[in-house]
Structures are given as C-alpha cells and as structure tokens.
C-alpha cells in the first residue's frame, strides 16, 4: 500500500499549485518505471479519498508505465525488458545491462483556468 503515501505526496504538490493559482485541479499525469511500479486502481482509490472536499476533488490521474530498457552485452541490441522473458529478443542471451529505470514522477497537472472558475 505504498500507493497511499504516493497519493498523499501527489495531493500535497497539486494542492500547493491549485492554491497558488486560486483555482481547482482537473487532472494530472504521473509516470513510473518497472521496478517502482504503482497500481493504478489503488492509487486512484487512495487519491479520491484524500482529495475529497478539497480543490483536488474529482481529479483524474493518468498513470504512464514506462518500459525498462536493456542493452544486450553480446549483440548490443536494445530492448524493452520483459520480466516473463528476461533475455535479448534478438540473440536470446541472458547477459544484458539495464538502462536507468524511470523515476516516479508527477509530470504535469491541469488546473482549471482561474478566470473561468
């Protein structure tokens, strides 16, 4: 249930922005990697509860799961790592290096235009 802490952090960041512009928030885009994944359903549920009766109520969260890139040590092929088939799809070697896994990021938020509020 680390999603609750993630939801809390996202909420605090968005609320600060919404207050700064004296408006409400509409949506947000979040991205995560393969080794720090989040469960979309649980995050949405936790966020919904935290955001109730605040300028963040009713927001939609878009969660992007970014593939982890791997580079084959043998044939140098670059591919998306698949935990169910952890090998190079070209030469089937299991010797590969990982690129940096994507961080857990709040990419952007959409606020309601203050004038149209």
């Amino acid at each position: 249930m680390h999603e609750t802490m993630v939801a809390q952090s996202i909420f605090e960041i968005i609320l600060e922005q919404a207050k700064q512009y004296n408006t409400t928030a509409v949506s947000a885009t979040i991205s995560c990697g393969q080794f720090n994944p989040i469960n979309d359903e649980v995050l949405n549920f936790a966020f919904e509860i935290i955001a109730k009766d605040t300028p963040c109520e009713g927001m939609t969260l878009e969660i992007i799961h970014i593939p982890l890139r791997a580079i084959c040590k043998g044939c140098k092929n670059e591919f998306d790592f698949d935990v169910y088939k952890p090998m190079c799809p070209m030469c089937e070697s299991c010797e590969f290096d990982f690129a940096q896994d994507a961080e857990l990021l709040l990419e952007n938020i959409e606020l309601k235009d203050p004038d149209t509020k």
């Binding site: 802490m5 993630v6 952090s9 512009y21 408006t23 709040l106 952007n108 938020i109």
Partner: peptide, 14 residues
C-alpha cells in the same frame, strides 16, 4: 491551464 512539473513524487522522503 497546464503546468509542467516533472517533480519526483517521493522527493520529501529522498
């Protein structure tokens, strides 16, 4: 109004 943040979500913990 869209705001680009690209903020690490667990920054406070970090």
């Amino acid at each position: 109004m869209k705001i680009e943040l690209n903020k690490r979500i667990l920054d406070k913990n970090e």
